[in-house]
């Protein structure tokens, strides 16, 4: 079984933690070589887009995230990985304050967007969410036409002229690589699109707001492999212009698309760093165990 080349490529000898568990083949996510991934040096040089300092997050009395400090570089893809329930999605939702909708939540510490405190009383949530777009796990098109879906953000921002809206819609759909598939049926219901198309529509919808940052909460977990590949390609293209933060529990995906990775476990940021380094040479035992598939 292990003789097929594909599987063989994925199995690599592990440096650490061999004794006792060595019977099971250790699968280490492979780093694709063809695509251009930012190196650790580049990451270090990149402008800091979001800076998180000693942030803790509470659901009423329960602490869901503990003392997290992390820097998210501009125009890079940062992946949050970790077992389900580790707080990575909660952390992601802190950036555009989606957690505010849940009653009894509280944030300590600070999250800065280009030096401005996100959780400040002066912060306008609407402006914040326009600058930080979000794509959800399940594609959630509005039950309206494709055009209305993409133009919703600009429309509520005050753009009324049909011509202007059309241009924004076209540009957004082109950037999300959906334009060619839907340009002849912009007035059809978005619910008629396939799952992968719907997800790219949701990306286009977020891009139409012209954000600097795109948050993606497991954007491909409900999609088939082909659609997933398209989304991943798209992420690769988008990172030239946008800072992207992606939550995934698929480590292959994290390895494929991200420049920086952060591993969460039980509400704690265990380790973060350049993806290549984190996956090939993790510093912490927990990280090693997780990415080699020993738990989670």
């Amino acid at each position: 079984m292990a003789s097929t080349p594909l599987v063989k490529k994925m199995i690599q000898p592990s440096d650490k933690a061999t004794s006792g568990f060595s019977k099971a083949p250790i699968v280490r996510p492979s780093i694709p070589s063809g695509k251009r991934m930012r190196t650790a040096d580049e990451l270090a040089q990149a402008t800091e887009k979001i800076s998180v300092r000693d942030m803790s997050f509470y659901y009423s009395e329960n602490r869901a995230l503990t003392d997290i400090s992390l820097s998210i570089p501009e125009c890079c893809v940062t992946a949050f990985i970790g077992p389900s329930g580790c707080g990575k999605s909660t952390f992601l939702r802190c950036f555009n304050r989606m957690n505010d909708m849940i009653e009894g939540t509280r944030v300590e510490g600070e999250i800065l967007l280009e030096g401005q405190e996100i959780y400040s009383s002066r912060t306008d949530i609407v402006t914040l969410r326009k600058r930080i777009g979000m794509v959800f796990q399940k594609s959630t098109p509005f039950p309206k036409s494709i055009f209305d879906n993409v133009s919703f953000g600009p429309k509520i921002a005050g753009i009324r002229k049909k011509k202007d809206l059309y241009e924004i819609v076209e540009r957004s759909l082109q950037r999300s690589a959906l334009w060619d598939e839907v340009k002849d049926r912009l007035n059809e219901s978005a619910l008629n699109l396939s799952g992968g198309q719907q997800q790219r529509l949701c990306i286009a919808r977020a891009l139409a707001n012209d954000p600097d940052i795109l948050l993606m909460d497991e954007p491909a977990s409900a999609l088939d492999p082909a659609s997933t590949a398209r989304i991943e390609d798209l992420i690769f293209e988008l990172k030239e212009q946008y800072t992207i933060v992606i939550v995934t529990h698929n480590m292959q995906q994290a390895a494929r698309v991200s420049d920086q990775a952060a591993f969460f476990y039980q509400g704690v940021l265990v380790e973060s760093g350049a993806t290549e380094a984190l996956f090939t040479n993790p510093q912490k035992q927990q990280t090693e165990d997780y990415i080699t598939g020993r738990f989670g």
Binding site: N96, M98, M101, V126, T127, L128, R129, K130, G133, M134, F136, K138, T140, F142, P143, K144, F152, G153, K155, I156, A157, C202, R205, A206, N209
Partner: peptide, 27 residues
């Protein structure tokens, strides 16, 4: 009307009333 509709609208920077008026009520 599923909550995902509201969440999506909020994430796009819609206010509560814009969410209700443009998305929840039509749906």
């Amino acid at each position: 009307v599923p909550d995902s509709i509201r969440r999506s609208a909020y994430a796009l920077g819609a206010t509560r009333w814009q969410t209700v008026w443009y998305q929840v009520l039509p749906a």
